[in-house]
């Protein structure tokens, strides 16, 4: 029964999703960008609505939406007296509401909104698998060049600049990678759950890591374990895959931190 659902495309997509999101997720948790990730995830609905309303290519429109918003956020000056996380929360839910409004006006009753909110990895086909794989390759190649700069920036931006290593361009590339990755993975995990796969594997791996590289490695491992166990369980018990994947990753986090949750030091 499992083999029936698990086509080669589903397996490759799951693997690619696990690797891409966990590797970006490490930097997301270091730089406290959880809200940023969720704002980008929610803006995908603007691209989805746009594509459905004017029958454009869905993937292209979603990428356009997230990349534009990420560039906007990168260059926007701080608004006085409003903290950055509040701005992100406003953009995040504002975009979600506008997107849902557009979809309800357009009367696109033939689409299943759940597919966008929660995704469906079992719908992966040749085209979507090639797209996500390509994005993973772009992320891995870029990481070779920006990884060290991202660590230096996480430690202290001024310290890096005074060491003659400017980090702004690396940070910009990272944000574009994040936008790109979220845009193409939205069909797999859905816009409501995708942020969790950025955060959970990275947060789980912190407790067993002593260096940034090891943390990256463990995040990938936990992400793959969570993804595949969730995928298999979802097929066996006939529940949505993305939900099962997130629950499994969440359980990994809980098990690793059980002594902190139940035992007071």
């Amino acid at each position: 029964m499992i083999a029936e659902y698990l086509s080669i495309f589903v397996i490759i997509s799951a693997f690619v999703m696990a690797i891409s999101l966990s590797s970006l997720g490490c930097v997301v948790v270091w730089q406290k960008m959880a809200f940023f990730g969720s704002a980008l995830a929610h803006t995908t609905i603007l691209g989805i609505a746009w594509a459905l309303l004017f029958s454009y290519d869905m993937v292209l429109m979603v990428i356009t939406a997230t990349v534009l918003v990420s560039i906007l956020l990168f260059f926007t000056q701080r608004i006085p007296n409003i903290s950055y996380d509040t701005i992100l929360g406003i953009i995040s839910h504002g975009a979600l509401a506008i997107g849902l409004l557009l979809l309800s006006i357009a009367d696109v009753s033939y689409i299943n909104l759940n597919n966008y909110l929660f995704g469906d990895i079992l719908l992966s086909d040749f085209k979507s698998t090639i797209t996500v794989s390509l994005v993973m390759v772009i992320i891995m190649v870029s990481y070779i060049f920006i990884w060290k700069k991202l660590i230096l920036r996480t430690i202290d931006k001024d310290l890096a600049t005074s060491f003659n290593v400017p980090t702004d361009s690396a940070q910009f590339i990272f944000i574009i990678l994040l936008a790109l990755c979220i845009a193409v993975m939205i069909n797999i995990l859905g816009l409501l759950l995708i942020t969790s796969m950025l955060l959970l594997p990275a947060a789980s791996s912190r407790i067993v890591s002593s260096s940034p590289g090891i943390m990256l490695l463990y995040a990938m491992i936990f992400s793959i374990i969570g993804t595949f166990s969730g995928l298999v369980l979802s097929i066996i018990y006939n529940v949505p895959s993305s939900v099962a994947i997130v629950v499994c990753s969440f359980l990994i986090f809980i098990v690793l931190h059980i002594k902190y949750i139940f035992i007071r030091s």
Binding site: W30, I151, I155, D156, L159, S162, F163, S209, M215
Partner: peptide, 29 residues
């Protein structure tokens, strides 16, 4: 141009989620 500066900031805020040993830190620079 490219004046070599050794800067010691008043404090640095390394996020607790970033695992980094002193030796690794010094190696980075």
């Amino acid at each position: 141009k490219n004046l070599k500066i050794g800067y010691l900031p008043q404090k640095i805020n390394v996020p607790s989620l970033l695992p980094i040993k002193v030796s690794y830190f010094l190696n980075l620079y």
